[in-house]
Design a protein around this nucleic acid. Structure first.
Lengths: 252, 252
DNA sequence: AAGTGGTCTAGACCACTAT
DNA sequence: TAGTGGTCTAGACCACTTT
């Protein structure tokens, strides 16, 4: 059955898909929140009344509201209603930027600077859930573009006889694996970003001053069974990556 | 009309809402991806065939798949299909933790350590989009719990005659405003987290060693018109906040 | 009892992609 | 041309919260 409510899009040029109704609706509601018509903590009208007022179906209204939920502008509570949230940077999520160009670059490569077997000690034993003195692979990398060292990496990997790791594989798995995940092996990661001061050795390798500010990205990798495979950290000088976020109103 | 497909929930104890179908479906698909049945980059079956196989409606299938999209496990492309994504920590989003308890604490307070009027210089002029030598309010805070200083804050605010700011208001607006947003004024923020070394003065105020690693959280706040209101930075020693993330398989 | 959001169904039209 | 995901509608039942 032809839907009589659907706007006639036949006159719209091909390739010029019009903005979806739910996005228009979301935009409208966003304006009302941002210009103060609805203030923080205030309840906004119910789906039913918004649907009635806007002439849109309840589901379309809901879809629009879910956009605002994703943006963190409102929260929804079953049986109570939807409420305007307070702006709070504690709930901001920071994304990593500034590395993609280098990673995609053909000149990007990881050179392994050392590999040896190491007997597990704390805190690695805790992170990898292995007993003390378990033999682990210890590897160090320099992540480079041309002749410049962008980041340093060092990590420990569990030496599983059922999963033999050649040095070449390590070089690949740690680089690609850590950045993009090893196909069929690494299925998840737990990450923490910490502030870090470059040591003498690190500063020399990175051609920076001792004590220069950097991020330390500490990670633990897991397999599909949620068992740890490897752990380690990347030393990222402040120039190599950015950690940015936006909250509230979207700024271009 | 009674829906014959709906599972009979009448025998389920009240308060024991059963797991929604779309979540069960998402869980099922997630397992197939994580155990390697679908590998990275591979196309997964279409909505229609998944719907047919699972006995669920297309919309419910879609809802389940959108869970996986949110988790970053798959991407969807119009006209092509849905594909398993590769694990990539470059797309990880880090959230701030470790502060909530303190913020909620009754002993948490901000003490203003200085306020004066300042003539704008670069880079503040750029951030706040004001001409050089525009008078700005400059304020410094110590964010404390009991007698311990958790974080330092300093920032610049545009002195708008239409928006008079008393010192007391500044104290409140910068604290609550920066953490939770000033009701009716700040509508958005642009944030960047940087590694930072404590200066002599900062170390003394925080009772830490000079050069200790810390985060610097640099911000610009905007009003509803996306115009800058204030900018500044929080100095957060590594103990005061955490920046954590997870990618891929959810680890408890 | 009334109202709210959460879940689920069926069916339709569309733009996009690949063949 | 056939298949895919994207948008939209109408209608139903449910658990939850407030009155």
């Amino acid at each position: 059955m032809k839907n009589p409510f659907r706007p006639d899009t036949s006159k719209i040029l091909p390739g010029q898909r019009e903005i979806p109704q739910y996005q228009k609706f979301a935009e409208q509601m966003r304006s009302l929140i941002l210009d103060g018509s609805y203030t923080s903590g205030q309840r906004i009208p119910s789906e039913a009344s918004l649907s009635k007022d806007s002439g849109l179906s309840v589901l379309t209204v809901r879809q629009g509201l879910s956009v605002l939920v994703d943006e963190g502008l409102i929260v929804r509570q079953t049986g109570r209603g939807s409420f305007v949230t307070e702006l709070n940077w504690l709930k901001a999520s920071f994304t990593v930027g500034g590395l993609e160009e280098w990673i995609e670059s053909h000149d990007f490569k990881a050179s392994m600077s050392s590999f040896r077997v190491y007997e597990a000690q704390s805190p690695v034993t805790t992170l990898l859930k292995v007993p003390p003195k378990t033999p682990l692979g210890f590897i160090q990398h320099r992540l480079m573009v041309h002749k410049d060292t962008l980041m340093l990496h060092e990590g420990y990997v569990i030496l599983d006889p059922k999963r033999p790791l050649l040095e070449a594989e390590l070089a690949i798995s740690f680089l690609i694996g850590v950045v993009k995940g090893v196909q069929g092996l690494i299925k998840g990661a737990s990450l923490e970003m910490k502030p870090h001061l470059l040591s003498d050795n690190e500063a020399q390798l990175l051609d920076l001053d001792v004590g220069a500010p950097a991020f330390s990205l500490d990670y633990v990798f897991f397999d599909a069974a949620k068992e740890p495979i490897s752990c380690g950290s990347f030393i990222c000088p402040s120039g190599s990556i950015k950690l940015c976020s936006r909250v509230g109103i979207p700024i271009n």
